[in-house]
Design a binder for these strands. Sequence first.
DNA 1: ACCTGAACACCGTTCAAGT
DNA 2: ACCTGAACACCGTTCAAGT
Lengths: 229, 229
Amino acid sequence: MTRRPNSGNPLGADAEGRPVRRALTREYIIRIALAMLDRDGVEGLSMRKLGAELGVNPMAFYHHLPNKSALFDGVVEAVFGEVTVGLDTLNREDSWREQLVALMCQFRTVLRQHPNVLLVLATRPSYAPSLMAFGDRTIGLLRDVGFTEHDLLIMISSLRSYTIGQLLVEVGQPVGGPTTAPDEAAALISHYPNLAKAVAGGYDPDAHYELTLQAMLDGFEQRLRRSKS
Amino acid sequence: MTRRPNSGNPLGADAEGRPVRRALTREYIIRIALAMLDRDGVEGLSMRKLGAELGVNPMAFYHHLPNKSALFDGVVEAVFGEVTVGLDTLNREDSWREQLVALMCQFRTVLRQHPNVLLVLATRPSYAPSLMAFGDRTIGLLRDVGFTEHDLLIMISSLRSYTIGQLLVEVGQPVGGPTTAPDEAAALISHYPNLAKAVAGGYDPDAHYELTLQAMLDGFEQRLRRSKS
DNA sequence: ACCTGAACACCGTTCAAGT
DNA sequence: ACCTGAACACCGTTCAAGT
């Protein structure tokens, strides 16, 4: 069940590998937990290992966080916090579509850097201020275009779902341990000619993402035009 | 960490609650594991509890499955197996869009019945024949419409990602234990006027899904028309 | 061949004790 | 207040033993 050999310096150490024993705070614990998640995956993060990593008794955490779930809540907040970075560099003179695509690509780029946290992000409801700010900003942008309140909610929810869903299949770690025996399984595809032919052409995740994003926006825009006429 | 109080009859029992001690087979183990996942969630499924449920020593499973990961592989296969049910009732005289919407809604309906398995489905690569058959069928349908091989792959991948992503936020169980304190957090939304206004209107998941599905198809269809002219 | 029991190296968390 | 150590009720899996 061990996934990676915990090699190298402990996460609570400086560049030269000297252990940095700093005062335990909620923020510090969460920061190291995120680093550990990135390195070892969800199933590789335990209170006990986190304690070892920080050179501290695992029970010490319970003075700063009620339980492990709260640790995950903190990690989600931390990752969404990275999303707002560069939000203000948006060029307000660009078209709404250019701005929206920039927003979503920024969202995707940040989440993509934390493949092992995707599952947690996708399923834990979060009221992280940075996420709310991001959503608020996006909705404001789209409302000015003329979408109804009803459609606005659907749009941002769908954009988010698609983005996360796509990332999950793209870089997500399998829940329940690594899959076995894709060897003869991959050959099975030849029994499905349509599928085999489509898969043969290869696959560029970034281009794929933006193409579908544009298609979704085309669809929503078409809906907007129809409602106006 | 206990999520639900394991009340009622064990899963390996008939309608009257009599324990059914049948011979252990891979299929039977997987069937009960799926039922247990549906009832108790991913974190509530353990080899030991599964053993207790079946009135058997947990180690007995290792004669039918190499490890717990393989159990998850089996469960994924079983759920995708349900997708093909009713695949042949499709009316081939319907338009391609009607057929595709029917296919995707069928896919979504089946997955929706196993909220706790969604995470596993989303992240474990699967070569389940039923899933391959489903994809093959879908691609065949769309190719006849005129889409390129390149676009075909993107379409089915995106449709799948969106469907699963949406279901995850809709009915998915939070990874890492239940979230706490949404009480004052929900009030926070008032600080984000655009968001608050959009959310106020309420939300119908089924309508939401089909609206976005239609928008995506509109977008892809538009792309098809542009490429032809 | 199929199932069992003991054992090993892990978990999260509680609780009493230290400073 | 913050951290520790022992303890409790769990995990997946190995391995030798039974039938």
